[in-house]
């Protein structure tokens, strides 16, 4: 008598498994992308409406840690798409041989031309030091003024965080041979070097430093989400280094079609319109609805700095050891 019950149970479980058998797309990304206030939840909802699949974001650390995680797992990785590398890391990422061409064409609204076959941009921004207007009435206008001021700053570790690496290359591209000297000066202003962006920005908001390395778009968050116009980004006359954030398809993915579908979705209006007010960056393809109100108040750097991925990779190690030896002393 027991057997029919067990059989029924097994059938019920099998049925449940079958019902769950929507294909699953796993996307590795950085932590703040998947946080409750980041783009993750909205993107997941929007994509699941059209894909008949289960989109799963996995927060796998910031920037370089994200790439290292992928290298650590190699071809065994569960990831189908990696979202959140930037152009300073794409050469290293391409070198792993773990990525497949995306095959997507789009007309990007980027300040630079885009023709990378492996990586597809989803947003971009300029790095900048963000401050509170009420506390810093006369913000520095360049690195020299920052060094000579008595302002305290929080920056991120270039080994673990993409803004940190961005600053490293910003200094290198603006000053070249003089970079070590600039770092020596900057280090006097640095309160602490954090592992990631969230910690640094949190410390700035708590008043632990006068300025924080972030983006020219960060003040938009305070303006739009909080109705607070006291935060601003300092415009530097050396120019501002850019960050272009990209996603790539993992070659060993067991859901290649779904991954392609996701990448096409990523440059569509549905995804791009979520970006400005959740990731607080410029969308890679400006949606038909345009940029949200408030973005027009942001500073526009006179000069955009950006190394090509190959240059960035070449520069990275030299700039890193300059930074380490300046910081280690």
């Amino acid at each position: 008598m027991r057997y029919p019950i067990i059989a029924a149970g097994i059938l019920a479980i099998a049925g449940a498994v079958q019902a769950q058998e929507k294909p699953e797309l796993t996307v590795y990304t950085y932590d703040s992308f998947v946080s409750d206030w980041g783009p993750g939840p909205q993107v997941e909802k929007a994509f699941e409406e059209i894909c008949d699949c289960d989109l799963k974001f996995v927060g796998a650390g910031d920037g370089a840690a994200l790439l290292a995680r992928l290298r650590l797992e190699g071809e065994r990785t569960r990831a189908d798409v990696v979202l959140g590398l930037d152009t300073n890391l794409t050469a290293a990422a391409a070198g792993t041989g773990l990525f497949a061409p995306h095959g997507v064409e789009a007309s990007f609204d980027l300040p630079v031309a885009w023709d990378d076959p492996l990586f597809l941009p989803f947003d971009w921004g300029y790095f900048a030091f963000v401050y509170d207007r009420t506390k810093v009435p006369n913000p520095p206008r360049n690195f020299a003024e920052l060094i000579d001021s008595d302002l305290s700053i929080v920056i991120q570790d270039p080994r673990s965080s993409t803004p940190g690496l961005g600053l490293l290359l910003w200094v290198k591209s603006a000053f070249g041979e003089r970079a070590p000297e600039i770092w020596e000066g900057l280090n006097r202003r640095v309160v602490t070097v954090t592992k990631g962006w969230s910690e640094a920005y949190g410390m700035f908001l708590e008043g632990e430093a006068d300025m924080v390395l972030s983006y020219t778009t960060s003040p938009a968050y305070h303006l739009i989400a909080e109705g607070d116009d006291t935060k601003a980004a300092a415009a530097f006359d050396e120019g501002h280094y850019m960050q272009v954030e990209v996603a790539g398809k993992v070659a060993s993915s067991d859901q290649p079609e779904l991954a392609d579908k996701f990448l096409r979705f990523m440059v569509s209006d549905a995804f791009q319109s979520i970006i400005p007010t959740t990731n607080w960056m410029y969308p890679a393809v400006v949606p038909a609805s345009g940029l949200p109100d408030g973005f027009e108040t942001l500073i526009q750097p006179e000069k955009a700095l950006l190394y090509s991925p190959e240059e960035a990779q070449r520069m990275r190690d030299a700039a890193l050891s300059e930074w380490l030896s300046a910081a280690g002393n």
């Binding site: 370089a64 290292a68 570790d157 673990s160 602490t192 070097v193 930074w323 380490l324 910081a327």
Partner: peptide, 21 residues
């Protein structure tokens, strides 16, 4: 630690492994 100024060997192992692989 607050950055590269204060890195122990244990932390350097972690960084070499976790960030640079």
């Amino acid at each position: 630690g607050g950055g590269p100024r204060a890195t122990t060997v244990e932390l350097a192992i972690y960084q070499a492994f976790r960030f640079d692989f």
